[in-house]
Computed example of a mutant assay.
Amino acid sequence: MTTENKDIMIRLESHHIWIETIGEQGEQLGIDEIDLRNVELSHYPLGQAYITACNFDGMNLNRKDFSLSLLSSSTFISTSLEGADFCKSNVSYADFTNAKVKGARFADCECIETVFVKADLSDANLVAGLFDETDFRNAILFNADVRLATFEGALLKGAILTGVRELKEAFIKSINIGSPEQPNILVGEEAKKWLNDNILSYE
């Protein structure tokens, strides 16, 4: 084990104690630009932490608790995150390309320019999330719950939207059915109609 990995393990344990004692002991985790791919994270909670620009690529983090954490600019490329909890976290500018995020909870989550290209978000809870210029191109959103979620400039080209739930309860400001380089922006009712048509077209 490298010295850096030993240091991370000590800090993870301290964060665990901090959570268990409601902040009376231990220390809240705060790390930046750390490669965590060779760190054993299975026994440690990652909620209520500051984990910015860190690398989780290709890891198995199914059902991991990331709730109430700042995870901006971190990468989860091809990471397995089925059933993971990102409730009330900030994953702005994070990259979930090809991630397995089936059944994950992004409720009340901030996702500004977050990348979900080719991610599997089947059955995901997106309730009250903020999806501002979020990239869902070629993502699977089968049966995802979007109640009270806000979409503004979200990229949706090639996304599978079959059975998306509670669309009527979502705030659809605008969507981009083109690309970042060649945008095709649909606003308001036009955006809602496109979404409705695509939800039904796969049935």
Rank of each mutant, 00 (worst) to 15 (best):
L36A: 10
T79L: 02
D123Q: 05
V117I: 13
T2E: 11
E152L: 09
H16S: 12
A53E: 15
N143M: 11
L36Y: 11
V187H: 12
G163C: 05
G83K: 02
I10D: 08
I17T: 15
N38E: 15
C111R: 02
A154K: 06
R105I: 10
V164I: 15
S78M: 05
N143G: 11
G26R: 02
R147V: 02
I22G: 00
F66A: 03
A99G: 01
A107C: 08
L12Q: 09
Q182E: 15
F151M: 10
E110C: 06
K100N: 09
T134D: 04
L155V: 06
Q25C: 01
E203C: 06
E24M: 01
S67F: 01
K64E: 08
L36K: 07
K192P: 00
S89L: 03
L161M: 13
L141E: 02
V127A: 00
G178A: 14
G30I: 05
S67R: 01
S74H: 09
V164T: 13
E152S: 14
I17W: 00
F86P: 04
E13W: 08
Q48E: 03
A104Y: 08
I140S: 10
K88C: 11
F56R: 04
I19T: 00
T3R: 04
L155Q: 11
T21I: 02
I17E: 10
L141R: 04
I175E: 10
L167C: 07
T162K: 14
G129R: 02
L68A: 02
I51E: 09
A159C: 09
L12H: 06
C54E: 06
M9C: 10
E152V: 09
N5G: 03
L36M: 15
H15Y: 09
K88V: 08
G26Q: 05
S78V: 00
C111I: 12
G158P: 05
T114M: 09
T162E: 13
I185S: 07
A149W: 12
Y93P: 00
Y44P: 02
I185C: 13
A139T: 04
A191M: 11
T52V: 13
K193T: 12
R11L: 11
E13D: 12
T79E: 01
D85C: 09
I17F: 10
S72N: 13
L61E: 03
I8G: 07
N198W: 08
C87W: 01
N62F: 04
L81I: 05
S73R: 12
V117R: 03
Y50W: 13
T162L: 13
D35I: 11
I17L: 15
K173E: 15
D120H: 03
L36C: 12
V117P: 00
N55F: 08
M9P: 00
F136Y: 15
I140A: 03
S122Y: 03
V115P: 00
E169D: 12
D120C: 02
Q182L: 14
E203M: 06
L167A: 09
S14Q: 14
I19V: 08
K192H: 04
F96V: 02
E169H: 09
L186P: 08
Q25Y: 07
S80E: 09
